[in-house]
Structures are given as structure tokens and as C-alpha cells.
Amino acid sequence: MHRVPPDRKHLKRRGRRSIRTAAAAILLFAITLCFPVVGSRAHSGLRLEVTACDTGDVLLRMEVTAGAEFSVWFLHSYDRAPFEEHYRVLGREHIRLTHMTFKGSLNGQGFVLGTYRSLPDGSAELADIDQELERVTFRLGSPDMADHTLSIGGRRLRLLDYAEAGTLLCIRVR
């Protein structure tokens, strides 16, 4: 069988077509990165920010969606037992404290919020708190006294890695 070599015009057209196809593929890839497909998890425009309350300096920032849950874990100052406050992102400047879990007996005083429940492992919780807040505010404790940790999206972030002990911290949704 005898093959006829392609003429130069045909080769040029095929070369231009390949360049156009490659350019279109690159453009499509870039558009996919910038504009997520409908139905995929699009950016909500919400950010959880940990700031130094006194200066407003942003120490930590991450994108969140409405409904995202996070918690602040620490050793309670009274009995140095683990204590965790659980929150849910509602929207810009809106956070809901949902419940608290803890190991210690605290100081025996009554609780103003929630329903106290003993848990089988010896810990307890204050459930059904559902208090709306604009921000969560607390003084960052030292590693030996509190060791505050932010848990969100499967990550645990030790807040002393972002600020010094004694700093007044604010957690907000912007």
C-alpha cells in the first residue's frame, strides 16, 4: 500500500487545530478552577476569624459555610479538667453556642444555660443551650493552665501557636 504524504496546507491546518484545542482545554480548566460547577461546594463568602480583640489583628482566618461546626477546647481554670464549648456558624456576625462538654465537676455552682446531663464515660454536658452570639471572646490561657485549642473541619489548631498567653481573643464570622 502506498501512502500519499499530506500536503503542507493540511499540516498547517492540523497544527492550528491542535493549538486551538490545547488553548480551549487550558481555558476550560482555568474557568473550572475559578467558577465551581453548579451543585458543587461553592465558596460561601464567610470566614471564621480569630483576632486579637484589643488591636483587631487577624491571627487566623479560614473559609466556612453556614452550618459549619467548631469548638473551643481548654483546661478549665477551676479544676484543670477538659472543657469544650461547641458552636455552629449561622452567618455573618452570627454564631450559636449549642452545647458544652466537660470532664470535671467544675465548682458545684448551678448552670444558667442548658440542660445538665451526666454521660456514661463520667463526663457531662450542658445540652440545648442554643444561645446566639456575635462573637466568642476569651483570654488565651498559658499552655500549663488552659492550652486553648480551636477544632474545625477535622483540624485542631492550638491557639498559642497564633498568639501569646494573656491575649484577649475574639472569634467572629465575617
Rank of each mutant, 00 (worst) to 15 (best):
R41W: 01
S18Y: 00
G104R: 01
G153T: 03
E164N: 14
A81M: 15
D57K: 14
F138N: 05
A68V: 02
L90F: 05
T101L: 03
G104L: 04
E69T: 06
S123E: 04
G166L: 02
I19F: 01
T65I: 10
E84G: 00
E85H: 11
T167E: 13
G122Q: 06
V136K: 06
A66N: 08
S105L: 11
D144K: 11
G56P: 06
I26L: 13
G110I: 00
Y162E: 06
R92F: 05
D121W: 02
R20K: 11
L106I: 09
F83G: 00
R8E: 14
V112K: 11
C34E: 11
R117E: 15
V173R: 04
D79S: 08
L133G: 01
L106Q: 10
H94A: 13
G154A: 08
D161H: 12
K12G: 01
I95Q: 00
P82E: 03
T55K: 09
D7V: 00
T137A: 10
G166D: 08
H43A: 14
D144Q: 14
G108C: 05
R88W: 00
E134V: 08
I26Q: 08
L33K: 04
V72A: 03
T65K: 14
E85T: 04
A163G: 10
R41N: 02
D57S: 12
F102L: 02
E69L: 00
H148E: 10
L168E: 12
R174E: 15
L113V: 04
Y87E: 01
I26H: 04
L168C: 08
A127L: 07
T101H: 07
H2Q: 09
H43E: 14
L106G: 07
R92E: 13
E63R: 10
A24I: 05
G39V: 05
V58P: 06
S151D: 03
W73H: 15
D79V: 07
R61C: 14
C34H: 08
A127G: 05
L160S: 08
I129N: 01
G108A: 02
I19R: 07
G154R: 11
F138T: 08
L140P: 04
G45A: 07
R41F: 03
A30K: 01
R174C: 11
V37C: 00
E69Q: 09
E125C: 14
T55P: 06
S71T: 09
R13N: 13
A146V: 01
R92D: 10
M62W: 02
A68K: 09
I26G: 06
D144C: 02
R61Q: 15
L48E: 05
S71R: 07
C170A: 15
R92Y: 08
G153D: 10
F35I: 15
T51Q: 14
T137G: 02
E134A: 12
T32K: 05
V136T: 07
G114W: 04
V50M: 09
V112E: 09
S77A: 10
G141K: 08
R20N: 13
E84N: 02
T32S: 14
R117K: 15
D161Q: 12
